[in-house]
Amino acid sequence: MKIPLNSNTAVIFRLSAMGDVALLTGVLSYWNIAYHTKFIVITRAEWAALFENHPAIAGIEALSKESLERREYIHTCRKLAEKYADFPLLDMHGSTRSRLLAHQWRTSVYRYNKMPVLRRLFLWTKGKIGRNALLEKNVCQRYASLLCEDPIPRHLLKPRIFLDEEEKDDARHLLSKLFPCSDAELRVGYDLVWVGKGELPENMYGKSLVNKTSLRELCAVLSQCSLLITGDSGPMHLADGVNTPLLALFGPTSKEWGFFPVGRNARILQKDMPCRPCSLHGKSACRQKENCLEKIRNEEILEEVKKMLA
């Protein structure tokens, strides 16, 4: 281990986003097996379920929205620092909130290298500076390098969501209700189910579980699917975490950001455009006539889907 933790248990801090939190699950497995360390995870209440049943987890501190509000957060930090006074803190967020907590922490604090300057330099210089350094390690490897000396093979750090048999059975049941066997003979194409949160346009082909599943139910549903088609999103990492093949369409973000899925059954569709990546988180408004995601034709997606499901 690169740094002596002086304890068999360490506290991990990562609040959001869901994908980043999911990416931690594989790193914790690696550290747990390599160093026999257990972890107490501090995260937002909505993402806490990702750590249920995880063998590397000794405890979860699920922070509510209220406990993260400005004034209340100072008290939250004090309480956490007092409760976990004996354990080192691994700051996997590097945000203002994590620094405030670190300021109150009573023992050692270690922070992972988020490469904030290099990522911005890469973005501002349109890829002239920092490409190789960014490509060298994906986000999981950057997390892992906090404790590990060598770059770890990517596939060993893939996200890991631990579902139990009951959760998988429930998902099977849910899907069988959506797609009863009697329909099978009538269908020519694939069973398609929409998942996630948000608004689904009307009259879309397929069935919808949008806004209808909890986070673990979503993971369980994904685990029972043959393929997930997705953008650069949280569910992409969840599918990787339950070993479901996935086809990811990358547009505003790119490989340098370190979020490409690493599972053996993951494929990427993307188009080379000089404006990519256009922002750190892919949320900038597009000024192109045809944007990077629109350039990926439906036929290409379908072709890839056919290959993956063959």
Partner: peptide, 14 residues
């Protein structure tokens, strides 16, 4: 180490 254990975990999960 710890690669064999992690490969085992991958193997079990897949």
């Amino acid at each position: 180490c710890p690669q064999p254990a992690l490969e085992t975990l991958n193997f079990i999960q897949q």
